[in-house]
Design a protein around this nucleic acid. Structure first.
Lengths: 226, 226
DNA sequence: CTTCTGTAGATTGTTGACAATCTGCAATCG
DNA sequence: CGATTGCAGATTGTCAACAATCTACAGAAG
């Protein structure tokens, strides 16, 4: 019965899109690599038609690019584009914070503080494995709570594309406590119902995350070239 | 030779996408209306395969929606979603202004002032037909000059979707002078190389445009319901 | 008269096949 | 020996046909 419901709800190109996206974000399809339609179609046991429709959607999302008569390639994001993505993401996240500060209920502030405490604990324990998903959920919760689906959709698109930037060393060791201190300032701005301060702290948080990532990347690049 | 170059550069789904987009934005395909694949394929003299790929891209852009086993429908944007789009657009435009204020050359400021003067003239003459395209080009030039392709792409997507909001009465009569006064404040902030002021004036300009549009819409709605 | 059911037509979903194009290697020519 | 041309295999682009699903209308039952 489950298969039936799935097939009724999601179309075949829809599930393929999610599946391929997972493969890309999971690293099975590496950035810059070619996407073979026949191979993929065979792997999923479907025809090339629905597959190509899924790839078109992924192209619009910026995860792959189509070169006429050459095929699809997994998108490669270089530091320059990563910077651009981060700037846009900061602006959107700032908007999320501003919106949240205007409409925040007491329950919502309590929710944010609870998540903050959980992250603090993980940061103190230097437990990156625990911190990472909490951090992700925290940001996602914020963007969702802002109540603007258009904003949320664009934000998620940007985050997906950032995963194509080869630099898994997202936040290393010392970054945890620093990052969560910024989180606390963000939540306090929301609790004070101060839209301007919220926008600023939220946007700055992403801007600083960008600096952390890019400096880590450049040092890693210079290290590997030595 | 032209056809050959076109076919080499743009793929068939690519040209179909642009063609259908034009039909939607031009009003030939009305919001809420159904899109018949066979009819469209026949109209363009192509098969349904490339057509469906084009529609997938347009779905990702938010211009159409796909309902499984029912087909594609031209997206309808209600006032609530238009508000959300405007909020995101304001944040992005604010980022464009901030970026511009940091990197503006003298030439760029001169360019902006020249466009400003042209719009002033049209506004004084109450010549909406002349003002409208100048205004569009002004905004597009700014977003382009910010030098962030990711920002530009997202911004353009939002503008396209706003065209689906049924309210062609974009700016009526008196709005022209007001709007251009805001433009002048924006350009002056850029000329002063003041990023914070630029962000604020740019974002506020879009927010005010939203208010102008939505109040016009609601008054038109109450008038039509009377 | 209203409601339900069944059927015919239309429309979308998917597939497999054919045509066009590209890539890589080998043979030939200068 | 290097460069170029030609060919074979692989891959993408497009199409037309078939299967599945939905819509609308007609007819029958309550």
């Amino acid at each position: 019965m489950d298969d039936l419901t799935v097939l009724r709800t999601r179309s075949l190109p829809g599930v393929l899109e999610k599946e391929i996206e997972k493969a890309i974000l999971g690293g099975e399809l590496v950035p810059g690599g070619r996407v073979n339609e026949n191979a993929l179609a065979g792997h999923y046991g479907v025809s090339r038609g629905p597959l190509r429709e899924a790839l078109r959607t992924l192209q619009a999302a910026g995860l792959v690019v189509s070169v006429p008569n050459r095929g699809y390639f997994v998108r490669r994001v270089d530091p320059a584009e990563a910077t651009q993505i981060y700037d846009v993401r900061a602006a959107l996240f700032g908007l999320a914070g501003e919106t949240l500060a205007r409409r925040a209920s007491e329950d919502l502030v309590a929710q944010l503080r609870a998540r903050l405490d959980a992250m603090d604990e993980a940061a103190r324990a230097r437990d990156f494995e625990a911190y990472y998903p909490l951090n992700l959920a925290f940001h996602d919760y914020i963007v969702e709570a802002a109540g603007n689906p258009v904003l949320a959709a664009h934000y998620r698109d940007l985050v997906k594309r950032l995963n194509l930037f080869r630099a898994r060393s997202l936040v290393q060791g010392g970054g945890l406590a620093v990052s969560n201190a910024e989180h606390r300032a963000m939540v306090e701005a929301v609790a004070r119902r101060d839209p301007a301060a919220a926008r600023e702290t939220f946007a700055n948080h992403v801007a600083r995350a960008r600096e952390r990532l890019l400096s880590a990347e450049s040092s890693a690049a210079s290290a590997s070239s030595t």
